[in-house]
Amino acid sequence: MNKKYLIVVADYYKDIAKGLLDSALKLISKSNTIKIIKVPGVFEIPVTISKNIKRYDAFLALGCVIKGQTPHFDFISQASTNAIMDLSVINKKPIGNGIITCLNMKQAKIRRKKGAEAADAVNSVLSQK
């Protein structure tokens, strides 16, 4: 069954974003309709999904937050996670959370294939009866 996917990618860390996106795309059937929207950072992902929630069957939120010297990391990570979960539950649509949170760039590079896990989770929810 053909489904419409919206993938929202925060490309602040372009190399990491590309890895997340490439790994996710491998798990979404080519028979589906896929639209990709790039945003500057993970904080912009939930509002972008919200603006498009009625037009798509499933969503992927992809991006990376790396811990710095301030509590900004904690605020952004928690706010985006909560907003994504709220959007998914309220609208009863699957949103795969492929936003990785890392302590450093080395960790991020190791985890840049995690987009596949988000896509797999969405596919699993879509297949429920």
Rank of each mutant, 00 (worst) to 15 (best):
K4I: 02
K4Y: 04
Y5R: 09
L6G: 05
L6C: 07
L6A: 08
I7N: 08
A10N: 10
A10Q: 09
Y13H: 15
Y13T: 05
I16A: 02
A17T: 13
A17V: 08
K18S: 10
G19A: 09
G19R: 06
L20G: 12
L21F: 05
S23V: 04
L27D: 08
I28V: 06
N32Y: 05
K35D: 12
I37E: 06
I37A: 07
V39R: 05
V39C: 04
G41T: 15
G41A: 07
V42N: 09
F43P: 06
E44G: 14
I49V: 12
S50F: 15
K51P: 09
N52T: 15
Y56R: 05
F59M: 04
A61L: 06
L62K: 07
G63P: 11
G63D: 13
C64I: 01
V65G: 05
G68L: 01
T70H: 02
T70W: 02
P71M: 01
P71T: 01
H72P: 04
H72Y: 12
H72K: 00
H72V: 00
F73G: 00
S77K: 06
S77T: 12
A79S: 15
T81I: 03
T81Q: 09
N82A: 10
I84F: 03
M85I: 11
M85G: 07
V89D: 05
I90C: 10
I90D: 08
K93G: 11
P94W: 03
G98T: 04
I99D: 10
T101Q: 03
C102T: 01
L103F: 07
M105N: 09
A108W: 06
A108F: 11
K109G: 06
I110P: 04
R111K: 15
K113T: 10
G115V: 06
A116D: 02
E117S: 05
E117D: 07
A118Q: 14
D120C: 03
A121R: 08
V122T: 03
N123G: 07
N123D: 03
N123L: 03
V125L: 14
L126I: 05
Q128T: 13
Q128L: 14
